[in-house]
Design a protein around this nucleic acid. Structure first.
Lengths: 337, 337
DNA sequence: CCATTACATGTATGCGTTTACAAAGATTCT
DNA sequence: AGAATCTTTGTAAACGCATACATGTAATGG
């Protein structure tokens, strides 16, 4: 029982390869009688079309590449999951490109486009410079998720970082906090800057001074939130609340507070960003700006598919809104705004 | 700037396609002088070989499929990450197949093998029946991770569930606990059964009776641990310790304990299984059996690559040992065994 | 100096499909 | 009935590369 090709099934049912091929691509073009014969032959021989040949002939692979900073991060993997689901429903395979946040890796993966290994790519939170991206992809279908600094007109879908950060900050202000700290992500990233701006503008809008010593740059991860908070909370004039640009940092900060015997939310309120799985499970459950992860994934795939099919995009840039989910880390958790 | 093929670069440097092709596959077979010319032409034309053609010609894709129950689960995604890294280092792409634990999805993804879309697959924690797997893969390279019920001789790499569960239980026993609860995973899975056996055998070995009302079947996830513990801890005669077959369930149980005002580890000790990221971050940090996730991933890829190359396997079945990492959820956390 | 070998290159075939085109058969219309 | 049209099928040419084989050229040995 060696490899069975389309020729074999053609012989088997005494038809040409062309008609056999047609029952796959244009079943309605072949007579019901012969179609039946072909199906039977396929069944009997347990034939499966060779995708390599099909791909070469059609010059497409029906697969897309997802370039992702880190699959271990549940925020990213949630989006990835949404992407995979949507892709699968539409008959696309997804190739995984975990970059460990390295621009070099990003570029390597992008080359799969010119090599025709994938028909398109979804680029999650790129670190590469936009103009570099443009240079590499050279008119291939790409949609970017989570980053809008794209002078080249690459389609993207993002959330409204500035607004959301503002909302988070205002939540704390409304709760009576005046001395509020802010932990940002790496400021090299535009989304970090946007979120930081949102914080500043909310403070300003309410006539609150920002103590610069209370705004620090982290790296989005747990440890940095922990370290930063440990130091800050032990200082002479600690903040009463914190806006963190990621849930992990927020949770790290809470852990630091607990270590110092500072109770949350009574003595220290914190709000995070992302709504990762842990936000619900940690102690106390974290109030956070929930990003529309599912939509980010789904919409990006839908856009990409349209591009790959050469259909027009209703809009090249999609901006989604986040939602403040209030749990217990800020107090007054029964108040729905 | 149209699609540039190997013919173009051949013309450009006034050589045949054969020699151009050879600088990719057997550079040493072409004279240094011409090799240089080819390189230059490639550079000038910005040529990238078309993988579709190459794949068809060589009847292989240099990519592997990873079938995975759920990428959102950091335990799985850790292994996936290790797989991706190893694959990348060896020049392989990884295609993602998230199944949401559905055997039907598993089977669909497995078909990519016969369709030649991938050269081999790594099958993480399959739910399909082994004989079904055998039927579908039909002599293609496959290695299974985390499941050994494979009458068909498919290579696998697993951890020693029975032993580890025993070790975890003994840790609690040594700490003086006698009334110990056990939360298992779905008992349809062989690894759940193995872990449960380990628990029972440890108890028996120490002459301890197992109260059947204290062993419950969960589903590995947070919520089930929470629900089970909430009920059990509120009962008249609660256990003083718990062995959970997953970290998520363990953390769920700790959360339930906290809700009931039961202090950990003083009134209730718990040990988990897996050593997921959250185990370090949760409160208190969880003592757990750490699986060799990195090795599980790396070794499975290494085995698969050998198989794809037709090289012999030094051993078809690899069994790795877990490691008890002692943190604070059982007390006496300064004691290294 | 020619026979033998080693090396470098070119020619041409095939990998397994899809599809444009041609051909043949069935159907409709005048 | 013959022309015109539609439907169904077959023939053959790609798709872009790798490679067996043939050819040509340089190096080696007697």
């Amino acid at each position: 029982m060696r490899k069975v090709t389309m020729d074999d099934v053609a012989k088997r049912c005494k038809l040409s390869v062309a008609t056999v091929s047609r029952v796959y691509t244009n079943p309605e073009k072949v007579s019901p009688k012969n179609r039946e014969k072909v199906y039977r032959a396929i069944e009997e021989l347990n034939y499966q079309p060779n995708m390599l040949a099909r791909n070469l002939r059609k010059l497409q692979t029906n697969s897309i590449l997802v370039v992702i900073p880190n699959i271990m991060n549940t925020f990213f993997s949630y989006i990835l999951k949404s992407i995979q689901n949507t892709a699968f429903e539409n008959g696309y395979q997804v190739l995984l490109g975990d970059t460990d946040k390295s621009p070099e890796m990003e570029e390597k993966y992008l080359h799969l486009l010119q090599q025709k290994m994938v028909d398109g790519v979804i680029f999650l939170y790129p670190r590469m410079h936009p103009s570099e991206i443009q240079r590499v992809i050279d008119k291939h279908p790409v949609v970017i998720v989570g980053h809008q600094e794209t002078p080249a007109d690459i389609p993207f879908v993002i959330n409204n970082n500035r607004l959301s950060s503002q909302t988070a900050t205002e939540h704390l202000i409304r709760l009576g906090h005046r001395r509020i700290a802010y932990f940002s992500g790496p400021l090299g990233l535009s989304l970090s800057k946007e979120r930081q701006e949102g914080f500043f503008s909310a403070m300003e809008a309410h006539g609150l001074a920002v103590d610069e010593s209370l705004v620090c740059e982290g790296d989005f991860y747990f440890q940095s939130g922990y370290d930063l908070a440990l130091q800050m909370l032990a200082s002479p004039n600690p903040p009463t609340a914190l806006v963190a640009a990621s849930d992990e940092m927020a949770i790290g900060a809470m852990k630091a507070a607990r270590k110092l015997g500072i109770s949350i939310p009574d003595e220290f309120a914190v709000v995070g960003f992302d709504d990762i799985k842990m936000a619900l499970i940690c102690e106390p459950p974290l109030t956070t700006m929930a990003q529309p992860k599912e939509d980010l994934g789904r919409i990006s795939v839908e856009m990409l598919i349209r591009m790959m099919k050469g259909e027009p995009l209703s809009s090249k840039h999609v901006i989604l809104n986040d939602e403040l989910v209030i749990r217990e880390s800020c107090g007054f958790h029964l108040n729905r705004l």
